[in-house]
Computed example of a mutant assay.
Amino acid sequence: MQYSRGRRRATGPASAPRVAEVFTAERPRDPQREARRRRGPFRQITDFAAASGIGQKAGIVLAATGLVLTVTVPVTGPVMAGQEPGQAASVVSAAPQPEISAAAGARIEFSRSPVVTQADPDSRLKQLLSAQSAGAITRAASAGTLGAPLAAMTTVSTFGYRVSPITGGSGDFHRGVDLVAQCGTSVLAAAAGTVTFASWDQYGGGNRVVVDHGNGLKTTYNHLSSFNVTKGQRVSRGDVVAFSGTTGASTGCHLHFEVDVNGEVVDPTGWL
């Protein structure tokens, strides 16, 4: 009997191929994952929209249309040390805003402080007059609120007591300032207002224009050669109201300019 020197081939059934064992790190369990999976993508989008402040209705529309929503929250707080300008802060916190309710049909008004600049003298004058009577306004507050009644200002006679240029007597009270002006020079409104008088003045002012600026403040322009406005007319600062002359109690062409506060004349230089 001969024996085969070769190794005996197994006659049993073939064994299954070995599978290499792969070990992976276990992912940390997300306690909200199963809850989100049960809600589905539609509910996830609407919840996200509501939490983002967009609104649940908008979230439903987004979910229904299949749109992907991205929300960027701007950083309005101060830039921290070491943070580049424009770089988003790592933590953003916003204080909750109070809810404001009103009855149906309620009237809601918004008030704000007026913005006044040196380039807007009419607004400054209006604010000054609306806050108090003209008589209570100090010289420091009124200075510069009225515009020049002539394009070029040169004073030849100041406000107050003086020697009368007509009679030569002392003790004459000058009610305004006399300004150099050739006859026919344009006379300008010192501020916005309403013309209350444009006629002949029987007390020596000759042709006279009076402009009322409100709250007890008026300006007057005297010895005019002619008028450019009528009574009741509304004028703006710088409008030509008349032309200078030498009518009335006058010794030559000039403009007599007055400022009247609550019926009493005051030094015009305190307002110019």
Score class of each variant (00 low, 15 high):
Gln2Glu: 15
Gly6Leu: 12
Arg7Ala: 14
Arg8His: 08
Ala10Thr: 11
Thr11Gln: 15
Ser15Phe: 15
Ala16Cys: 01
Pro17Trp: 03
Arg18Thr: 11
Ala25Glu: 09
Glu26Asp: 03
Pro28Tyr: 13
Asp30Phe: 10
Pro31Ala: 13
Pro31Gln: 03
Pro31Ile: 08
Arg33Lys: 12
Ala35Gly: 10
Ala35Met: 02
Ala35Leu: 15
Arg36Ala: 05
Arg39Lys: 03
Pro41Cys: 00
Phe42Asn: 01
Arg43Glu: 04
Arg43Ala: 10
Gln44His: 03
Phe48Glu: 14
Gly53Glu: 05
Ala58Val: 06
Gly66Phe: 07
Leu67Gln: 14
Leu67Glu: 10
Val68Ser: 11
Val68Ile: 10
Leu69Cys: 04
Thr70His: 12
Val73Cys: 12
Pro74Arg: 04
Thr76Phe: 08
Gly77Arg: 09
Val79Glu: 04
Ala81Gln: 11
Gly82Leu: 01
Gln83Tyr: 06
Glu84Pro: 14
Val92His: 11
Ser93Asp: 15
Ala95Gly: 07
Ala95Asn: 08
Pro96Thr: 07
Pro96His: 15
Pro98Ile: 01
Ile100Asp: 06
Ala103Phe: 05
Ala104Glu: 13
Ala104Pro: 09
Gly105Phe: 12
Ser111Lys: 06
Arg112Met: 00
Gln118Cys: 00
Ala119Leu: 00
Asp120Met: 00
Ser123Asn: 14
Arg124Leu: 00
Arg124Val: 00
Ser133His: 11
Gly135Ile: 14
Arg139Cys: 05
Arg139Pro: 07
Ala140Ile: 05
Ala140Phe: 13
Ser142Tyr: 07
Ser142Glu: 04
Leu150Glu: 08
Ala151Cys: 07
Ala152Ser: 13
Met153Val: 12
Met153Gly: 02
Met153Gln: 08
Ser157Trp: 15
Ser157Gly: 11
Thr158Tyr: 06
Arg162Gly: 03
Val163Arg: 12
Pro165Asp: 05
Pro165Glu: 02
Thr167Gln: 04
Gly168Ala: 03
Gly168Ser: 06
Gly169Leu: 02
Gly169Gln: 15
Gly171Phe: 07
His174Asn: 01
Arg175Tyr: 06
Arg175Met: 04
Gly176Lys: 04
Ala181Trp: 12
Gln182His: 09
Gln182Asn: 09
Gln182Lys: 12
Gly184His: 10
Thr185Lys: 10
Thr185Trp: 06
Ala189Tyr: 10
Ala189Gly: 03
Ala191Leu: 00
Ala191Asp: 06
Ala191Phe: 02
Ala192Trp: 07
Thr194Cys: 01
Thr194Tyr: 02
Thr196Cys: 01
Ala198Glu: 02
Asp201Ile: 01
Asp201Thr: 02
Gly204Val: 05
Gly204Arg: 13
Gly205Thr: 06
Gly205Leu: 05
Gly206Ala: 09
Arg208Ile: 09
Val209Ile: 15
Val210Ala: 13
Val211His: 07
Asp212Thr: 13
Asp212Arg: 02
Asp212Glu: 00
Gly214Arg: 01
Gly216Leu: 01
Thr219Asn: 02
Thr220Ala: 13
Ser225Thr: 11
Ser226Arg: 10
Asn228Lys: 03
Val229His: 01
Thr230Arg: 13
Gly232Phe: 05
Gly232Glu: 01
Val235Ser: 01
Arg237Ala: 02
Arg237Glu: 06
Gly238Asp: 09
Val240Pro: 12
Val240Ser: 04
Gly248Gln: 05
Ala249Leu: 14
Ala249Tyr: 15
Ser250Tyr: 15
Ser250Thr: 12
Glu258Trp: 03
Glu258Met: 11
Val259Trp: 07
Asp260Asn: 08
Asp260Val: 13
Glu264Ala: 11
Val266Ala: 02
Thr269Met: 10
Trp271Met: 01
